[in-house]
Amino acid sequence: MASAADDIVVIVNQNIGVNKMSRDDVIDIFLGRSRRLPSGVTALPLDLPSTSLEREQFYSRLTGKSMGEINAYWARLIFSGRASPPSLAMSQEEAMQMVADNRNAMGYVAKSKVTPSVKIIFELQPE
């Protein structure tokens, strides 16, 4: 588990061909507004479990919203058939493994957990 002082980082596959993302790009991918990066690459976002502190910190730092508000937002997309929520990784280790194994996968983990198998393309520092 990350401490509240840890950076949360967005990770991608080493071979995705993208080295950097803007905050707007990350918001669009994780809020279901787009599944395509500016470079044209399709992104498959991954969420951590709803009880995960990193998930709460990620959305709070990225959007300023609580998990209740994020879930209310996703309820709109799910029940309207407009988008599917991110796939679920059961732990940060599994998220990194899924990203390392899938060229299009994109996840978020505490910076202290990152291994060389994945690439960091966006950082969210503590508020």
Binding site: A72, A75, R76, F79, S80, G81, R82
Partner: peptide
């Protein structure tokens, strides 16, 4: 592309007008 019976998207909240939590 979708086909069948759907919500008529007249309003911003049309799609989820029954989903109180949203």
């Amino acid at each position: 592309i979708q086909f069948g019976r759907k919500r008529l998207p007249m309003f911003y909240y049309s799609d989820i007008q029954d989903v109180g939590f949203a």
